[in-house]
């Protein structure tokens, strides 16, 4: 069934179509939610909340873009709102300026690790860094858009991203070195 028919059937309230839509996008959307949160339980909470919004607002989808893209944006927004609402993420979302690092945007280390490993590294970033890194590096938003989404200045978003990137590169390089050492030991 194509997306058009699927959406129409969902709008008619057919349970089978609703489940089909969920099964089609559940896995890729969980990947999105997983990157923004600190635990699988939180990721599933965001996924659940996001899909409820999807079904509630499906009538607003005008087929002007990809259905997957539309659902993904809802998931991202839901994840950001979840982080803002959830006390566990609150303090770090204030984007403190006390972790200053020397930033070198020219560093491009090769990422040799598995997707899950990289995702877990991203999730180890402080929530503020994690969110901005995901929005910029993975979702492809620019800093003006991120600033508006998070209610912060563009310059804040830019500097926070640079710090997040530097921290992640540091961890990736460390991981690469560890892998080299363990391979050498073997």
């Amino acid at each position: 069934m194509d997306h058009y028919s699927l959406v129409k059937d969902c709008l008619k309230g057919k349970p089978s179509a609703q489940k089909q839509l969920y099964e089609l996008f559940a896995s890729p959307m969980l990947n999105v939610c997983y990157r923004y949160t600190k635990s699988m339980a939180d990721a599933e909470d965001v996924l659940q909340e996001g899909f409820v919004k999807v079904f509630r607002h499906l009538h607003q989808f005008k087929f002007e873009g990809e259905l997957g893209g539309w659902i993904r944006r809802i998931m991202v927004t839901t994840a950001i709102n979840y982080l803002k609402k959830n006390a566990r993420y609150q303090t770090d979302l204030l984007f403190p300026d006390d972790h200053l690092h020397v930033v070198n945007n020219e560093q491009h280390p090769e990422i040799k690790m598995q997707a899950r490993e990289l995702a877990n590294l991203i999730r180890q970033l402080p929530p503020g860094y994690q969110t901005i890194f995901n929005l910029y590096a993975v979702e492809g938003f620019n800093h003006v858009e991120i600033g508006k989404m998070l209610g912060i200045r563009e310059s804040t978003s830019r500097s926070q991203y640079a710090r997040a990137r530097a921290l992640l590169i540091q961890w990736i390089e460390q991981k690469n070195n560890d892998n080299k050492i363990s391979a050498y030991a073997k």
Binding site: A26, S27, L30, N31, M40, A115, R116, L118, A119
Partner: peptide, 8 residues
């Protein structure tokens, strides 16, 4: 990240 494959 596109390679990530998690199942709820």
């Amino acid at each position: 990240m596109e390679e990530l494959d998690l199942v709820p």
